[in-house]
């Protein structure tokens, strides 16, 4: 079976195209699945994480993915970020050092273990610095790292993903922007919220519910419920952008505006896409300091 991949950008259309690709591939009975890029005019490098999540969700040991028809510029991007490595294309050196290459973290026992956190920490230490990478303030760097770990812990706790978690990013030095995508190919927010509320909520309503501070599908003695709200707070102060795509739900927040939409196809699991403004010197602290004595 051959599928043509159209242009993929980090937007609703791009995620819809990837969800449609997943639908087409998962309905194929062929052992060989060919992804033809000849009709793809542009591919946002960070979206390699989402494409990888799609491909991992439709393949098992009996299926082979073949990638061909790559325009030269796209091949260059996807070799630099190591997406194509698994499909027989050699890695290309990232001379500008603006790439956060594709990382796959396979979770043991469906939870975020110390070994996983060290893999992610090493990845961030290695790739959040380099000659092509805009200098971020220490506070933004800290908040950004914190957000990535928050997302990972969320994926680990809620996704039930057997494929693991995929991360990929790209710096745009002239735009002072860093794009980072985290995809889990798991069950999605919708399934978790439906189980919790025992109601048939839509994917969009499930994301809306999960974004509310205090809402969590966790049960037991560990509270939760504001990892996503923290993320939104960071993006608001940073004047960046966040997109959350989960099953047929699409959420976007930027410039103070929230957008919810329904995707035309079912996207595997949950993807969180961050656009960080790297030229940001916010202090990220409340104006009045909290006293350690008053905290409890």
């Amino acid at each position: 079976m051959k599928c043509y991949l159209p242009t993929i950008r980090s937007d609703k259309q791009g995620f819809t195209e990837l969800a449609s690709l997943k639908y087409a591939l998962s309905n194929s009975i062929d052992d060989e699945l060919v992804i033809d890029f000849s009709k793809c005019k542009f591919f946002d490098a960070n979206m390699a994480a989402s494409l990888k999540a799609v491909l991992s969700s439709v393949t098992d040991s009996s299926k082979t993915i073949v990638i061909n028809g790559l325009p030269q510029a796209i091949e260059c991007i996807l070799r630099k970020n190591q997406f194509l490595n698994e499909y027989g294309y050699p890695v290309m050196r990232d001379t500008n050092q603006t790439t956060l290459p594709l990382l796959r973290v396979i979770l043991q026992y469906h939870c975020f273990q110390s070994s996983d956190s060290h893999v992610l920490a090493n990845y961030l230490n290695t790739h959040l610095s380099g000659k092509g990478i805009p200098e971020m303030s220490p506070m933004l760097n800290k908040k950004f790292r914190q957000s990535i770990f928050e997302i990972f812990e969320n994926c680990a706790a809620h996704s039930n993903s057997r494929q693991g978690i995929f991360v990929c990013g790209q710096y745009f030095p002239r735009l002072n922007r860093l794009d980072l995508t985290i995809s889990d190919a798991g069950i999605g927010i919708r399934t978790n919220v439906r189980r919790f509320l025992n109601r048939q909520v839509s994917s969009v309503d499930a994301i809306r519910w999960a974004m509310e501070e205090g809402n969590t599908t966790k049960t037991g003695t560990q509270p939760g419920g504001f990892g996503l709200a923290l993320l939104k707070n960071l993006i608001e102060l940073n004047r960046g952008k966040i997109q959350i795509v989960s099953r047929q739900g699409y959420y976007e927040f930027s410039n103070g505006k929230i957008k919810f939409d329904k995707l035309a196809a079912d996207f595997p699991g949950t993807t969180i896409n961050l656009e960080i403004n790297t030229n940001d010197n916010n202090s990220y602290c409340l104006s009045s300091e909290i006293s350690a004595k008053d905290i409890f």
Partner: peptide, 10 residues
């Protein structure tokens, strides 16, 4: 936790 990373509920 054996280091400076406090990033897992475990």
């Amino acid at each position: 936790v054996g280091g400076g990373l406090c990033v897992s509920s475990d």
